[in-house]
């Protein structure tokens, strides 16, 4: 039986092994490749999506568990937090290689939704699951603060 869910606001369906991680359904079957594979065991955060608005590692999320729920990926993320985060990211040139950045952006948007004015400790905790091997962390922290400030103003 196919798994039905909402993907970036539209209905989506996957008719295959229900244990397939959401990551591979998105990338290999639905053609949304902005969500990345980096480890497959929820250690690096490159695969972060929003499930019903909350951060979720899609590499360890069987597609069967998202049935009837709403999935948002980097291709569909929107709203004031997303706009603020993505503008801040570009303004200070956060990305280097860029491979982890979809996940970083999704985690940052999720963080700002939960904590609109995050402290340094909030950022450390909220972004701890996202590895950046290029170590763009100084700028990730700054961009999250810039985004929070922009949303206030």
């Amino acid at each position: 039986m196919a798994t039905e869910f909402t993907l970036n606001g539209a209905s989506a369906s996957f008719d295959g092994d229900p244990d397939t991680p959401l990551l591979w359904v998105l990338r290999d079957h639905l053609g949304l490749t902005g969500t990345k594979y980096g480890c497959g065991i929820a250690q690096c955060g490159a695969c972060t999506v929003h499930l019903d608005g909350k951060n979720r590692r899609s590499c360890v999320t069987p597609v069967s568990t998202v049935a009837g729920r709403s999935v948002t990926t980097i291709e569909g993320v929107s709203g004031p937090e997303a706009e603020a985060v993505q503008s801040a990211w570009v303004a200070i040139d956060v990305p280097q290689c860029g491979f982890c950045q979809s996940g970083q952006v999704m985690s940052a948007v999720g963080l700002l939704k939960a904590r609109p004015r995050p402290s340094d400790d909030d950022i450390d905790a909220g972004m701890a699951g996202n590895i950046c091997r290029c170590a763009t962390y100084v700028r990730i922290r700054q961009a999250i603060k810039d985004a929070a400030e922009a949303m206030e103003g």
Partner: peptide, 21 residues
């Protein structure tokens, strides 16, 4: 000068080898 690839690496549209279909 702003980097040429910051925007595409922020909105997920940049293509890596892994994304080739």
């Amino acid at each position: 000068v702003p980097k040429v690839d910051s925007a595409i690496k922020t909105d997920g549209s940049v293509q890596f080898t892994m994304d080739v279909r």
